[in-house]
Structure formats: C-alpha cells, structure tokens
Write a protein that binds this DNA or RNA. Sequence first.
DNA 1: CTGAAAGCGCTTACAG
DNA 2: CTGAAAGCGCTTACAG
Lengths: 334, 334
Amino acid sequence: MITLDDVAQKAGVSASTVSRVLNNTGRVSDKVREHVKNVIEAMGYQPNSNARALASKRTEVVGLVTPNISLSFNSVLASGVSELVQQRNYKMLVTNSYNDKRNEINAINSFRAQGLENILVHSHALSDRELVALATDIKGLVVINRFIKKIAHRCVWLDNVEAGKVAAEYCLNRGHTKIAMMMHKHQSNDDKRRIEGITLALNEKGLSVNPDAILYGKGGEDLGRKLAKQLIESELEYTTVIAYNDLIAAGALNEFQDQGIRVPEDVSIIGFDNLFICTLTRPSLTTIHHPICEMAKYAANLSINLVDAETETNKDTHLFLPTLVERDSVYAIQ
Amino acid sequence: MITLDDVAQKAGVSASTVSRVLNNTGRVSDKVREHVKNVIEAMGYQPNSNARALASKRTEVVGLVTPNISLSFNSVLASGVSELVQQRNYKMLVTNSYNDKRNEINAINSFRAQGLENILVHSHALSDRELVALATDIKGLVVINRFIKKIAHRCVWLDNVEAGKVAAEYCLNRGHTKIAMMMHKHQSNDDKRRIEGITLALNEKGLSVNPDAILYGKGGEDLGRKLAKQLIESELEYTTVIAYNDLIAAGALNEFQDQGIRVPEDVSIIGFDNLFICTLTRPSLTTIHHPICEMAKYAANLSINLVDAETETNKDTHLFLPTLVERDSVYAIQ
DNA sequence: CTGAAAGCGCTTACAG
DNA sequence: CTGAAAGCGCTTACAG
C-alpha cells in the first residue's frame, strides 16, 4: 500500500502540501499542484479513507437502514441512494432492519460508531418521538417516506392524503362508489392518511367510506390473496379495491381470477408504488406512482448537505406528490 | 463522543487493557475483564471503527459490487450478503456497476482504499483474466455466480450446464422436442453453458439444437417481448422456449398472450432464477431455481474466512446446483 | 504558498 | 496479567 508520505517524498514536498492538493483546500501554487497531481497519478495513489475519516472526523459514506432490501420497493430506494452517492463520491452502507426496532437502533448506532452522520432511515418500527430524538442527535439523519412534524425539514415524504384522494377520484370517475381497501398497518400511519384521502374524495361526492370494507393484515402477495378470500367470503359490497401496495394488489388480482372472478369486469383493483411488476400481471395494474427513486436521491443529497457545513442548511419541507398511472385493472362502469 | 481512553480512565486501567477486553485478545484477569465490561456498558461506549481499522489494518466490512441493485436478482443477492454480514457483525457496502467495466474497477479500488479486502463481485463486464489478476491481489475477493478455473476456490457458482440440462429434460419429458431459446450475452458465458446443457439433454434423445432458434438480445421484460415478436414472425418451429431469466420469460409470456397465442397450450415457457414474480404471472412460471441467496451468504462467509487468517483457507470449489420448480407454464403434450 | 508537528482513537509488540 | 509507547495514514491549526 502506498501512502501520502510516499507521494510527498517522491514529489519532494511535505505531506501537508499533498494533503492540500488532494482536498483542494488551502493555497497551493499551480505549479506545485500540477506536479503533485502528476506524481499521484503516476504512483496510482489512493488515500486511505479510514485515516482520512479519523483525522478529519467525517466519512464520505451514507448509511441506509431499510426493512428488507430484497423487496422491490426497498431495492429501488437503495438504488436511488446508490446513484446519488456515487455521483457525489460517497459510498453506501446498507442494513436490513426487517422492521424490527432493535435492528433499526443497532444499525444506526453502528453507523455512528464510525463517525458516520449521513444516515437515511426508512423506518416502520421506530416511533415519531424516537426518530425526533435521533434526528436531534444526528445532524445528517434524514427520514425517508414518513412525515414527522417536529423534524419536518428532515423528512422526505409523499403526500399520502393526496395519494388516497387521487386513487379514489379515479375510481369515482369510472363509476365506482363502493370501495374496499386492503391495508398494511405501520407506525408511519401511511394507511390512515391514504384512507383520509379516500374519505375526502368520497365525501365530496356525498358518499362515505364503509369502515367494514377496510381490511388489514401483514404481508405482500400472500396478504393480497388472503384479503381477497376474506372479501369474497364476506357480505360486503364493493366494485373496486384499493390496495396498500402493488404486491398486495397483485396477490388479490390473482386470487380473484383464480376463483373465477374477473378483473376488472367484476372487480377493479388499484395498486400503489408503481413497481415493475405492474406491467407483468394480467390485467396490468393501474396504480399510484410513488417517486421513491427520486425521493431516495433527494434524501441522500439532503443528508450530505446537512452534514456538510459549507452548504446552507435547507429548512424547506420535502414533499413529493403521487400520480396515477393508468393501466388495465380498473373498469369503467359507465 | 466517548473514547477508549475515557473508559480506561474511568475504569482505572490502561488503554491496552480496555482494548484487550474489547477484542477478547491477550490475557486479562476475570476480575478486571468483568469490571471493564461493566464500565463500557455503563458509559455506552462504542469503539470508533475508523480508528480500529486504521490501527489493526482490517475493516469489518464487506463490499459488494453488482450490476444494479434495483433488479430483483441483485437485490436478493445483496440481501443474502446482508444477512450473513449482520450475523458476523460486519457491515455491507454496495455499489452498482451498471455492467460497466470502469465502474466495476473503480468500485473495487475505492473499497481497497479503505483497506477493505472482503470484496464480492458479481461481474458481467470484467474478463476472466482481469478477475484473476484482482483475486491474486486481493485476499478476500470472491467472485459470485461465475466460474473461472484459475481461481476456482474463489468462485461461488452455479452449475449452468446442469441447469440447461434439467430444463431441457423437463421439456423433453413433457413431449417437447423443438426448443427455442431467449438468451442474454455476458462475459460470464452463462448462456453458452446452459445451451451446452440443453444440447446434452437433446443429444441423449438423438435430437439436436436448432442454432437459428437461439435468440439473443439485451434487456429484461422488454427483451422477452421483443424476442417473442421475433419468434412469432419467424418461420421457426418450436413448442417451448427456454428463457435466460424470469423477467425475459415473463415478457415473452405476456407478448405471446397479447397476440392471442396461448401459454402454455400453444407455446410453453420456462424461466430461470425463480424470482418472486414467478407466482405473479398468469400462467405462473415454471423455472429453474437459482439459489442466489444461499450463494450470497456462502460467498460472504468465504470472503471473511479468507481474510481472517485464523480460519483455515478453504481450497474447495464452491458449486451450487439448480433445481426445477414446476408451475403452470409448460404444457404436457402427451 | 509551504512545512513541522500534533492529534484523530485505536492496536500491538515490547517490557515487566 | 498489565502498562507505556509507538504507530496506523491522514488532516489541520500554527508558524513562517
């Protein structure tokens, strides 16, 4: 391994100077700078990032804690972070939390033990108050996909009320008034906000949500299948179901069809997220696009700026808007 | 931030001793060990991993470079690595290469700049010779999903010949003799090996592969659709298509059906990988299971052991076997 | 503009 | 079994 001292010696300058050209900091004459750069290039020198981190007290790494990177939503999120991070010459550390609070905390602590302040959390397990406490402690902590008022400028979130509204309005416009929902409960209360939006849209038309038609559970495709069964066996009236995410929607879609119920002719389904699977199902899935990749990039960038004192801290709120993507799973009754 | 010296002072011992109990190294009396542990616990001390890495010249991090973590195959791979890594108290750094050779090399170099030797590469862009050179340089480099003879004990790979054979035999057993293939070309030559396996199976029955029926291209679902169109417009005879992966298979499956060609009655399709999408398509996708998660865990573990001198170096070859997962996309002609 | 020196928070021979 | 000291490879005031 070749060190900064080796470079300094070879270039006939001091370590300080090499460090300065490396970091583009302090004044160095153009001549010397050029020369040192050449030597660095020639020797193929790469600074040791541990030494650097130790001495400067900052690491060029962002840590991501997310439920489970093998799930599409999470992997798209991670990919967004990865892209921005590579662009800014940072690295990305990833930890799966499996939605377990202890894991989330451990992951964050282990990042901090490294002096790492750029931490992105996509958490369903920690409470608002816990996240607020962490954010106060950790300058670069950014919460993805969740809104917490007290740390609004550290949250990169989606307008879930609007999302619910958009979904419901689309259904209403196509003649659907009896809406069932398949929801997944989380600390983040996404589900509640979406239901709120759906309620708003219905109320505007003088209609209301049937609380019995809001089904809950845990899972993905399997949950969709399970709740579809539940719906089929129930006495509920519904012409469309709004699902918490695309996986649940896809599961439901298949269960309905496997039981001889046509989608969308007999029952319509609308998903959420706009994952790649939406074009794979038959019928393809109409869904709400969740700009998770953009949000991830934005969050990573925000976190880096937050820690990097030179950049002005952004006190804005970071809100993203959902959009409807029309495909074939919602029937036009009229 | 609280340091090792703080702990030492509080405990009334030297830094060396604290370090020893931290690392479970050297002799420390039970009494002192106990006491120091208590102080550590009480103070909530966490060692700085940068300092540790710098002093000891080893980092407890494994770096993964993979084409694109937003794709399911890659994310399952990453998830496997993540799981093992968490288990062994390591962390995982991830970089997307987008199948670009420069990116792969840069990622590896940036890992090394950190003194990181535990590097896992899932590469389609680097040549065998380049990987061999890297492996010689980097003690803990492990190649996932590719076999290179010269560094056989550093490769964790799947028997692709067997995979092709299994797929073809399954088709043959169901009465299919005219097999088309949708392949994706890579440096790794997976495609060639699978074709070899398919050829083997056909030859055993006195049949042979029609080279014109081997279609190539780049992409996922879109490629499947494109090649399906190509197949439909061609004069080729085929009753089944073996796809390079599930995404391609799913795309083809939908294209056929969208054009009124029934799957599997008119044409059968067999995928590869056994991703979660296999149960989402209609018909569900018969496929070859690729134990990528297990392979990822195995590879991560191998890499750690390779670097960790205390563990004996494993000179074995690390071969995994594919298995067929039967679903609904292959028709029994007889 | 440039260099000498101290320091970042650990680990690890070396003594004892 | 335990401690003092040097060193890991950088950065960053501090002088000049």
